[in-house]
Nucleic acid binder design. Structure first.
Lengths: 203, 203
DNA sequence: GTCTATAGCCAGATAGAC
DNA sequence: GTCTATCTGGCTATAGAC
């Protein structure tokens, strides 16, 4: 019993290492430019061994996404437990957190349009349930913020939701970071200001 | 003389047809998923003939980008000639225009991260000069708007510039359009409202 | 310049020994 | 489950006839 459990633990650790590497490579290169050979090489195992753990390249990406979603859901649950936070503050905290993940090189960069990957993700139950779960949690915050008059009434709830998801993988972050003139925190605050405050002056 | 000119005209027309097709396919599929075979098939010529006009797949994408930039520069010049427009209105008109292009399926969707394509574009003089030209034109508007107090003082000029470029290929547009519940103009107005007015209420 | 046919390459996935 | 070696398919790009 203990022996089997130990073996499983080792396997789990190896899979964690694989997903770590996939996460980093997806962030650096994106899905297309990331090759399975590179993943195997960086993990330090043979490609065939990789395929014993994950059935396909798409499955690797899905595993990385699932882990990011799990971490995000954990963050949301943590914030929900906080007392006295306005819904708008929760949404801002969420946006700040995802931007930090991205600037840290831990946000998988998936292509907006890729039929095979999109199909695989849609068919992945683990990914889909987490994505829906997160959407519902955020939807609750958005509705609360709307009810409190904290959100721009000219912007519907689903536009707010999609915008938050889009900011999590906004290429503007990478551009500003590549410029090299600013710190990560500066970049995050500016994008927060533009996302929630808008580009235009308050009138 | 007349004969040669006519030939050149025919060639030009064919290249225009090629770039049209490339533009549409880039918009629908993105750079990676678009194959040169598909381009040739849709244009109705052999792949080898395509390579007589354009040296590589990257050159095809560059040509599509150059044409979009030319159209954008023409639009900017048109607006600059208008009297009595505030700089902020110019920037909004610009954003509205690029969003319309994208929703019309005429905005090439290039990957944010792709070494070979990025290198090819950077090396393409026609592309780079137009990109810089456009950046300068927009920079002038941005500075004027800042001087007039029309822009959010918490957002630096280059963040504004990058944000405008990013909105031109914002995946949120495609998501909302795919939802099917809204008209193109609704989508554009909401994204304009969120981009310039922000997600948060005006306080 | 246009075509058919093919070279050359790369990456995802698998076979089979250990 | 791990490895080495290989298969397979698809894609960019070109050769060579007309």
């Amino acid at each position: 019993m203990a022996k089997i459990s130990f073996r499983e633990q080792v396997l789990q650790a190896r899979e964690d290492a694989i997903v770590d590497t996939v996460n980093r490579l997806l962030s650096e290169l994106g899905f297309e430019a990331m090759t399975v050979d590179t993943v195997a090489a960086e993990v330090g195992i043979a490609k065939a061994s990789l395929y014993k753990h994950f059935a396909s390249k798409e499955a690797l990406a899905a595993a990385a996404m699932v882990r990011v979603l799990d971490r995000t859901l954990a963050f949301v649950a943590e914030r929900e437990a906080l007392p006295g936070e306005s819904a708008l503050e929760q949404l801002k905290a969420m946006a700040r957190w995802t931007m930090r993940i991205q600037l840290a090189g831990q946000m998988p960069a998936l292509p907006a349009q890729n039929s095979t990957l999109r199909a695989a993700l849609m068919a992945d139950q683990g990914y889909m349930t987490r994505l829906l779960e997160l959407s519902e949690r955020l939807g609750t915050w958005i509705e609360a913020a709307q009810a409190a008059g904290e959100l721009n009434p000219a912007v519907p709830a689903d536009v707010v939701l999609y915008t938050l998801f889009a900011r999590a993988c906004d290429p503007v972050l990478g551009l500003l970071k590549a410029g090299g003139s600013y710190t990560d925190e500066q970049i995050i605050e500016w994008l927060l200001a533009s996302t929630f405050g808008g580009l235009a002056a308050k009138a």
